[in-house]
Nucleic acid binder design. Structure first.
Lengths: 204, 204
DNA sequence: GTCAAAAAGTGACTGCGGTCATATTCGGGA
DNA sequence: TCCCGAATATGACCGCAGTCACTTTTTGAC
């Protein structure tokens, strides 16, 4: 169907126009009518593409996660699970800091939707399951304590990550500071995930 | 001022009527006018007591945190930091499961507000700083690795806790299952916070 | 090319959260 | 007891997200 291509193109246009307006005026100061006017369509049409105004933010979050997942492939040859995870998170942080103003809204919306929308799979769960795959692989190579499940480890790591995102987004912390903060905290949990490596590692 | 007592009483009444209606009909199906009608006051008066409709949920969250903090005092004589934290979290989980339907909204609102409201101190930050006090005390007794800061440890623990809350609220998991899940994950991070105790502990 | 059914587009309309100018009540100084 | 400024209450009003009955366009079977 040619129709489907058109549809995707229009969705993309709505998304881009929205982002431009949001950055210019702030999310709350942009009305759906304004967005549709900028796209040359009627207000109702917007809702054929996004169920809510906030869904634009979710779309952004989804794109960022997907592209981070994409870039993860480049690190596939790395031996160390810890390094791999670190690269992944640094990538995600970098992506979020592209739109620092929208980031907090996006993060808020990601969390909100994962709590409130009874969709099959929320973004947060999706993210955790991605992590699980990595961790399971690392576990097979003996980089994770035997008695821990990949699911629990993924949840712990995801928890620390999201908490960092949250605190970052609600403060005036710079992206670099956040990265450093996350690394310190990741180090703490890693001690519980694979203590052996730490003993021979860089710690005093 | 007698006025202040009256004021607190009315605020409490608005809160209680709101909670009753929310539980009966669901948050989204209750209008502010309905709440005020139930209290025998005008719509505008509501906004003298709560800045937004969602602020009711924040108030609930705040009350729960405060009462958990209160009950924490009962555990003050416990020697082990780990146990203390565990009791605290079990307490909080218990409180959230009193209103299981509202819990997810409350949690969502807590996180949202901590991201979006530039208030002096968000609830999440408040919570973390409470944890810090406990952890700092534990550290002085040698129950936390020397090289870790109380702030980082508090953040890690809070991250795991909030993540559990999030996943619980967005699933049909029962309160007991959540508690067990949290304990497992708490065990993981604790391994990074104070590995020594684990060696002589219950693990294989 | 024709036509019917499905898909996509439309914008007037609704309902509600939140505001604000005005009215009412209170409290305490004289 | 009276009066005035401050605190509180009020409800008509506004703006906007989201809906829906209707129109236009597209598609593909014949």
């Amino acid at each position: 169907m040619l129709r489907n291509i058109r549809k995707e193109e229009l969705k993309e246009q709505i998304f881009l126009q929205s982002m431009a307006l949001f950055q210019e005026k702030g999310f709350d100061n942009v009305t759906v009518e304004e967005i549709t006017r900028a796209c040359g369509i009627a207000k109702g049409t917007f809702y054929n593409y996004f169920p809510k105004k906030e869904a634009i933010l979710l779309h952004l979050g989804m794109l960022q996660m997907e592209s981070a997942k994409e870039s993860l492939k480049r690190y596939d040859n790395l031996e160390s699970l810890k390094e791999k995870l670190n690269f992944l998170f640094q990538d995600l942080f970098a992506r979020f800091s592209i739109y620092p103003d929208l980031a907090r809204l996006t993060i808020a919306e990601m969390m909100r939707s994962s709590l409130l929308i009874q969709a099959e799979l929320s973004m947060v769960e999706l993210f955790q399951s991605e992590l699980e795959v990595l961790i399971e692989a690392g576990k097979k190579k003996g980089q994770v304590l035997e008695q821990l499940t990949a699911s629990d480890v993924a949840a712990v790591v995801a928890g620390v990550y999201f908490y960092c995102l949250m605190v970052w987004a609600s403060s005036d912390m710079g992206a670099d500071e956040m990265r450093a903060t996350f690394e310190r905290r990741f180090e703490v949990v890693w001690g519980g995930i694979c203590p052996k490596l730490d003993v021979g590692g860089e710690r005093a």
